[in-house]
């Protein structure tokens, strides 16, 4: 399990995340919400060791990330980044790169690596594109390939930074469904989202960020009841009982 303890971090001359503590629990989908620039993505980067901590610690199963080799971090946590390069290669090849942390120099990917990559492509529903160049895929299909690459890393924790942005609604729901599947398999799944309704509906826990601080981290019900989202996003969040369970929607705030 990955634990963040009193973490302060950011970029030279600019603190972005301030004194944040949170545990990424196995078997749960944790969604981080907050306005742009509130520190969600930065927290993910620090959790993965892409940004050094200024204060506080990041623990992987109790071990400080600073004492770990990058390769070992990559065997425990995968990251679906927000902006990505799309080199002109076949999808399967792309997903295979998820096995890189397990590759010892200069060996080639093994049969087992291929099997894991194909299985990951089954999970995200992009197996039929395995011999297609990723440049030829639609945005949604490509996202499936990237997610498969992260899954091929076979880690206990999966971080996704705005995985649903630019996708059509069906694809967005598929991503949420995949997140749920992974959590049911016992993984800790951490997503940064902008869609409040989707987050409240699909998460086990919600972390609410404002100005680099984690204001609250609790179940969707408690977060909704606390009204903290209304303040952070300057909207009214409402809940409605529907035949499909509780649904949440936002309306503009009346002054």
């Amino acid at each position: 399990m990955i634990q963040i303890q009193n973490l302060t971090t950011g970029y030279p001359g600019k603190v972005v995340v301030q004194d944040v503590s949170v545990d990424f629990l196995p078997g749960q989908v944790l969604v981080l919400l907050g306005p742009n620039g509130s520190g969600k993505s930065t927290l993910l980067k620090a959790a993965l060791g892409l940004l050094p901590a200024e204060q506080g610690t990041v623990l992987y199963d109790g071990v400080d990330i600073r004492q770990m080799k990058r390769k070992h971090v990559a065997q425990k946590a995968a990251f679906l980044t927000q902006s990505r390069n799309t080199p002109s290669i076949l999808s399967l090849r792309m997903v295979l790169h998820g096995r890189f942390p397990y590759l010892s120099y200069p060996r080639q990917y093994s049969k087992a690596d291929y099997a894991i990559a194909r299985k990951a492509m089954d999970v995200t529903g992009c197996r039929q594109h395995e011999n297609t160049n990723i440049n030829q895929l639609s945005g949604g299909q490509r996202q499936g390939v990237y997610l498969a690459m992260a899954l091929a890393q076979d880690t206990e924790t999966v971080f996704m930074d705005e995985p649903t942005t630019y996708l059509d609604i069906r694809r967005q729901l598929q991503i949420m469904e995949t997140a749920r599947t992974l959590a049911d398999e016992g993984k800790a799944v951490v997503l940064v989202l902008h869609d409040i309704s989707m987050a409240l509906r699909g998460a086990d826990r919600i972390g609410v960020f404002q100005d680099g601080r984690l204001l609250m981290c609790d179940t969707p019900e408690k977060v909704y009841e606390s009204g903290v989202l209304d303040g952070v996003f300057d909207v009214h969040v409402h809940c409605a009982e529907t035949p499909h369970g509780k649904q949440y929607y936002c309306v503009e705030r009346e002054e």
Binding site: R70, T81, P106
Partner: peptide, 23 residues
């Protein structure tokens, strides 16, 4: 030629390369 795999990973972008365990 022996570093072609490293080049492949690097081509995915710096953040992705690092999160795949490359320094």
């Amino acid at each position: 030629l022996t570093l072609s795999q490293q080049l492949d990973i690097l081509a995915l972008g710096s953040d992705t390369a690092q999160s795949l365990g490359m320094s």
